[in-house]
Design a protein around this nucleic acid. Sequence first.
DNA 1: AAAACTTTATGAATCGATTCAGGCTCGATT
DNA 2: AATCGAGCCTGAATCGATTCATAAAGTTTT
Lengths: 338, 338
Amino acid sequence: MAAVSIRDVAQHAGVSVGTVSNVLNRPGEVSAESVRRVQEAIEALGYVRNDAARKLRAGVSTTVGFVVLDGQNPFFGDVVRGAEDEGSKSGIAILYGNTDEDPKRERTYLDLFEEQQVRGVLISPYGDINPRLERLRARGIAAVLVDRFSGDGRFSSVSVDSVAGGRMAVEHLIATGRRRIAFVGGPFEIRQVTDRLAGARAAAENAREHVDLEVVATDALTVADGAAAGARIIARPRSERPDAIFAANDLLALGLLQALIVDGRMLVPHDIALIGFDDISFAAAAAVPLSSMRQPSRMIGRTALRILLEETADPELIPRQTVFQPELVVRASTTPRR
Amino acid sequence: MAAVSIRDVAQHAGVSVGTVSNVLNRPGEVSAESVRRVQEAIEALGYVRNDAARKLRAGVSTTVGFVVLDGQNPFFGDVVRGAEDEGSKSGIAILYGNTDEDPKRERTYLDLFEEQQVRGVLISPYGDINPRLERLRARGIAAVLVDRFSGDGRFSSVSVDSVAGGRMAVEHLIATGRRRIAFVGGPFEIRQVTDRLAGARAAAENAREHVDLEVVATDALTVADGAAAGARIIARPRSERPDAIFAANDLLALGLLQALIVDGRMLVPHDIALIGFDDISFAAAAAVPLSSMRQPSRMIGRTALRILLEETADPELIPRQTVFQPELVVRASTTPRR
DNA sequence: AAAACTTTATGAATCGATTCAGGCTCGATT
DNA sequence: AATCGAGCCTGAATCGATTCATAAAGTTTT
């Protein structure tokens, strides 16, 4: 076990530990000769900085915690990737936690990040966690909400306008001739779900003609829950079935699509149109290519991490809300019937 | 800024710092009365253990690094999830790094994990990184290869028998009447790719009748590369096109499928059969439900983390190779033509 | 040539949890 | 009564990087 410390490097280079530390952290203030000698020693001894000691003394961490709602969802995979890219520019690594829409897991991860004294936390929250985040802030750990608008402005956030997205999706369904629309989504503890529903409601109410909007609740935003919801819809008498579905995300939509296709009684898009949300890369490759509301997922991750770093650099900064606009992507699943 | 230390807790509880530490780490050796007082003080002051100090002194870390080949691939999402589940049992968090098949990023992450002195590293490697892992081992950081057999047995590994998987996939294609098979995959620095190809070759050579097996190389294992490969195959004169494709993973397969469907000249499975590898959850929801070789992804993650923890507990353990068998999942994309 | 700066280097003090040799109490053993 | 051991507690030393007051050497200004 090597265990080469800064002291060994100093000795080998014939300088003091302070100088080695300076070479590591502010090489500009050290003579070129010393820099060279120290770097040689580091090379020769295979020295690797001990991050624990550094963190303890300097109080700065090089890791950022990311609490994700659903690690299985490619959308979050893309967001994390964006954050990772931005972080690697400044040597920041991501400590990763997947809550799977479970508040207990959410708490556990936040506790862990607190012990780790991460530089900051990115989180796509489940339910209301402001109090918890306030406590982290009191400890000097900033937080940025991801994919979720911070209504009270207590924290910065990077999100997509889910209300607008919901509205656009349903307006599109109406424009293509649908009048009996089902919103499939849940749980309603997830803000994005309620926002998308609110947008859908607004679109239905503002339509020129009468539009029915019903809500089909799901337990989670997964393919399996989508398939289950699809089965329930199929089981209804023909007259009570909707002629369009707006699913709260693409996983649900793909599950619904699967259920509808396997059953075969209702054709997409002829009998029933289907639109999702997120535009994950698999939406285009679906059995019937899926219309969706595209979110700039990677950009969301990049932006969130950038803001987080800015805030940790200057804690006086006022929280700001960054909202991207979603984009309607029309594919076969919402083609108008003839 | 609170900054409550173990010293404050000790004072508040009227005991020494050593006792507080004992309550935290081996409560059995402390009187019930002291435990109670210390826990009250912790509660009252809102004390949170400083992991950096703990790590520095005790030399044990509660994080494990996970270097993943392709964070976009849901397969790895599942594997990470498995590791996370297993880790949460013992309070282990995952430090996450996505290399995107880039050796430079791979190195960067390993450096970072070394500085962080993680408990151990799980890695699905690109190319040959044994030397690098040996160095980590010399520093007391164990590593377990994920989704990759360790040929020389220098490290433990948890993988799926890719050769067998490749063989089974191609045997299935042959059994359903295909004779001109294309293997689509790459880059060949990725061991899984070469293994799956080797299995495919074996199946082709052992077939009763003559079977053609050609290789269509791709730059990466992504949907986009799959679509590009599909375009190249379509562009050929009809007589030179294969009647079946074995794609090195499902992302490629979905890309291929997309290209074939958009073009429309070759129907899947009638003109050309298609099978992938991994059985990601989107395979079943594809335009033509995709046959695939299923890997027990979550189990791979769980097992890998368990082995890693066992090895860090006892460094004398001999590396062991855990190999799961893949399972053929037949769907519409390889239905025999009539 | 003295004074006033600059530049660069030094090394002890520090961060907070853990460890461990040593101390105290009290009941059991001789 | 002396000795021993079990049980529990104490607090100084420690891990390794950073910081900062201090000093030494070199340069410019007066």
